[in-house]
C-alpha cells in the first residue's frame, strides 16, 4: 500500500474511500456523509487535497460533472486498499480490546 504517499491526507483519504464505498458522491455530499458517520468535519482544502491524491493513485475516479458538481466513485484498487486498511484496523481493535480486558482483569 502506498500509504506514505498520502502524507497528512492519510486519515482523510480513508474517510473518503469509506464514504465512496456506499456509492458515487460529489465533494459536498462526501463532506456531509463523513461528518455523519464519523463526526469528522473535513474542510474543503483537506478534502480536495486528499481527492487529488486518491485520484493520482487510481483509488477513486471522477464521473461526468452534474451542474458544476463532479461525483467520484471508488475504483477496484481503491476498494482493495480500503479492505486492507479495515483489516489492519480490525486487528488493532482486537488487540486493544484483549489488552484492555487483561488490564481490567488485574
Amino acid at each position: 500500500m502506498k500509504k506514505k504517499e498520502l502524507g497528512r491526507f492519510s486519515d482523510a483519504s480513508y474517510l473518503i474511500l469509506s464514504s465512496l464505498s456506499s456509492g458515487p458522491k460529489h465533494g459536498y455530499a462526501m463532506m456531509e456523509d463523513i461528518r455523519q458517520f464519523s463526526g469528522t468535519q473535513l474542510e474543503p482544502g483537506t478534502l480536495y487535497g486528499a481527492i487529488s491524491r486518491l485520484e493520482k493513485q487510481g483509488w477513486i475516479e471522477p464521473l461526468p460533472s452534474e451542474e458544476r458538481r463532479r461525483p467520484y466513485r471508488i475504483t477496484t484498487d481503491g476498494a482493495a486498499v480500503l479492505r486492507e486498511q479495515v483489516a489492519t484496523l480490525e486487528q488493532v481493535v482486537s488487540v486493544a480490546k484483549n489488552r484492555l480486558s487483561a488490564l481490567e482483569g488485574l
Binding site: Y48, S52, S65, R68
Partner: peptide
C-alpha cells in the same frame, strides 16, 4: 481541474 467543483462546494459550505 478542481476550481469549478470546489467553488460549487464552497457555495453550500
Amino acid at each position: 481541474r478542481y476550481e469549478e467543483e470546489m467553488l460549487a462546494m464552497l457555495e453550500d459550505h
